[in-house]
Amino acid sequence: MDRRTAISRIGVMLGGALSASTLSALVSGCSTPAEEGFTPSFLSSDQLERIARMSNAVIPDTDTPGARVAGVHRFIDTLLAEYHPRPEAETFRSMLDEFTSRHDIDALSDEALVKRLTEVDRLWSAGQEDRVWAGIKQWTIAGYYTSEVGMTQELRMMPFTEARMDMPRSEIERTWA
């Protein structure tokens, strides 16, 4: 979100209750979250790094930041730590370790990883069950498009404005997050 948008948003909030974190995000120039200092709650550092590499292969850096910069891997760690019941999360962890060694993820260069995951995705899309890949892909999409990067840089947040429910598509640069 650019500062002008941020400030015009505050203008229409009409005294609405802003959480401290929102307000600070809005006025601090919406900086990219820093990686250092983050300790995963559920995954090991190695597991977190593998998730980060794979989610960034799904949504890479282009003219806008990709999944890693958006913090998707940390979101996935939070889901596993807090959203999913612990037995489900533990099952996913062991399946993830098996997936990692089966595909030799740690040994692959970023380029080779993309190649490997393209094949994994092709098989999954064709109907082959792959719970690890399904989880990574679905959580990456869910996390990226609800992140600040995904909603304000890659896509656009709906403005707070007068409604136009039937308007030309061409007047909107990118779709709503």
Partner: peptide
């Protein structure tokens, strides 16, 4: 919206950019 990406085939830059529409 972009949530449809979760059930669609593909990864990478073109995949990402296709959800700008």
């Amino acid at each position: 919206g972009p949530g449809r990406a979760a059930s669609m085939a593909g990864i990478g830059a073109d995949f990402k950019h296709s959800f700008r529409d």
